[in-house]
C-alpha cells in the first residue's frame, strides 16, 4: 500500500504542478479572449519571454525575484508592442501578428546562440529557496508555492472582471461599437488587457523554468498556445474557474495518454502529431457545437443570437 502511495504521490504532484502553471498561463489568455475578445495565437511567445528573461538575468547575477519581475514586465511590454499596430484594426490582425511573432521569437531563441545558447538550452539556474528546502521535498514545496500564486492570480482576476473595469472589457468582447459610442477608449482597454494577459503568461514562463530546471526553444512550440486555447474553451470561455478546471483536465488527459502510448503502435513523431490532431479537432468541435464549454457560464454565453 505504502509503496503505491510512494509511486502515486510524485506522479500526482507532477500533474498538479504542470496544471497550475498551465492554469495561470491560460488565465492570461482567458482575460484576453474570454473577457475582451482578443485573438492571441502567439500566447506561447510571452511564456518564452518570461522564462528566458528570468533565467538569463538570474544567470548573469541578478537576484531571482528581480529576474522574475523583469520577465513579467518584459512579457507585458511585448504585449504592448504587438498591440499598438493591431488593436485598432479587426480582430484578425492581432491573430496574425501574434502567431508570426511567436514563430520569429522561436527563430531568434534558436539562432542567437550568444544570447540564448540556441538549441542547447539553458540549465543550472537558481530555483526559489533551493538552499532551504531539502531536495526530496522540493517539488511539494514548489507545488504549494505555485498553488498560492495561482490563488493570487485567480482572485485578482475575479476582482478585476467583477469591477466596472471588467464591465467595459466584457462590453468590448460583445460589441466594441457600443462602448466606443458611449465614450470608452476601447483601444486603450484592449491594450491593457493584452499587456496584463501577456504579463501573466510571463509569470507562468518563469514558473515553468523553475519546474523544468532546463529550458530550450523547443519548450515553447506553437502547440503550447493551443493547449491554452483548449483549456480556456474546454472550461468555458469567460470563466476563470472553468479555466483552472480545464487545465487540470487537459493534463490529466495528457498524462493518461502517456500510459496508452506503450500500447499503441505509433512511432514517436506520430504520437506527437496524433496529439496535435486531437487538439485541433477538439478546438474545431468545441467551437462548432459547444462554444460555451463544458463548464462555461451558461447564462453568459449560451444566449447567443
Amino acid at each position: 500500500m505504502i509503496e503505491y502511495i510512494d509511486m502515486i504521490l510524485p506522479y500526482l504532484t507532477t500533474i498538479l504542478l504542470v496544471s497550475s502553471i498551465y492554469a495561470i498561463f491560460a488565465l492570461g489568455l482567458n482575460l484576453e479572449w474570454g473577457f475582451t475578445g482578443l485573438i492571441n495565437f502567439g500566447h506561447v511567445a510571452f511564456l518564452a519571454i518570461g522564462a528566458y528573461t528570468t533565467v538569463m538575468l538570474n544567470m548573469s547575477g541578478y537576484s531571482l525575484i528581480l529576474s522574475v519581475i523583469a520577465g513579467i514586465a518584459l512579457a507585458g511590454f511585448f504585449g504592448f508592442l504587438l498591440g499598438i499596430p493591431t488593436l485598432r484594426l479587426r480582430e484578425d490582425y492581432l491573430a496574425i501578428v501574434t502567431i508570426g511573432f511567436s514563430e520569429v521569437l522561436r527563430f531568434i531563441l534558436l539562432n542567437e546562440e550568444w544570447l540564448t545558447r540556441g538549441s542547447f538550452g539553458i540549465h543550472g539556474f537558481e530555483r526559489p529557496f533551493q538552499d532551504v528546502i531539502p531536495y526530496q521535498y522540493y517539488n511539494i514545496f514548489l507545488l504549494l508555492l505555485f498553488v498560492a500564486i495561482l490563488g493570487i492570480i485567480y482572485f485578482s482576476l475575479e476582482k478585476l472582471i467583477h469591477s466596472p473595469y471588467g464591465r467595459v472589457l466584457k462590453s468590448i468582447r460583445e460589441d466594441e461599437s457600443v462602448p466606443s459610442a458611449l465614450g470608452k477608449n476601447v483601444f486603450s482597454y484592449k491594450l491593457q488587457s493584452l499587456i496584463i494577459g501577456s504579463a501573466i503568461a510571463g509569470l507562468a514562463g518563469a514558473m515553468l523554468a523553475f519546474y523544468l530546471q532546463y529550458i530550450n526553444p523547443f519548450t515553447f512550440k506553437p502547440i503550447e498556445t493551443f493547449n491554452a486555447w483548449i483549456i480556456v474553451i474546454l472550461g468555458g470561455t469567460a470563466s476563470n474557474k472553468g479555466t483552472v478546471v480545464g487545465a487540470l483536465i487537459l493534463w490529466t488527459f495528457f498524462s493518461g495518454t502517456r500510459f496508452i502510448e506503450e500500447y499503441v503502435p505509433f512511432e514517436s513523431h506520430q504520437m506527437g502529431a496524433f496529439r496535435m490532431i486531437i487538439i485541433g479537432l477538439l478546438l474545431m468541435l468545441l467551437m462548432m457545437h459547444k462554444p460555451e464549454g463544458i463548464f462555461g457560464e451558461r447564462e453568459e454565453l449560451a444566449l447567443s443570437d
Binding site: 466596472p164 464591465r167 466584457k170 462590453s171 460583445e174 460589441d175 457600443v178 459610442a181 447567443s304
Partner: peptide, 14 residues
C-alpha cells in the same frame, strides 16, 4: 446593439 450577454442593469451601468 444591446450587449446581449450582460444584464439590462449592467448595460446601463457600463
Amino acid at each position: 446593439h444591446a450587449l446581449t450577454k450582460m444584464t439590462v442593469l449592467e448595460n446601463l451601468m457600463l
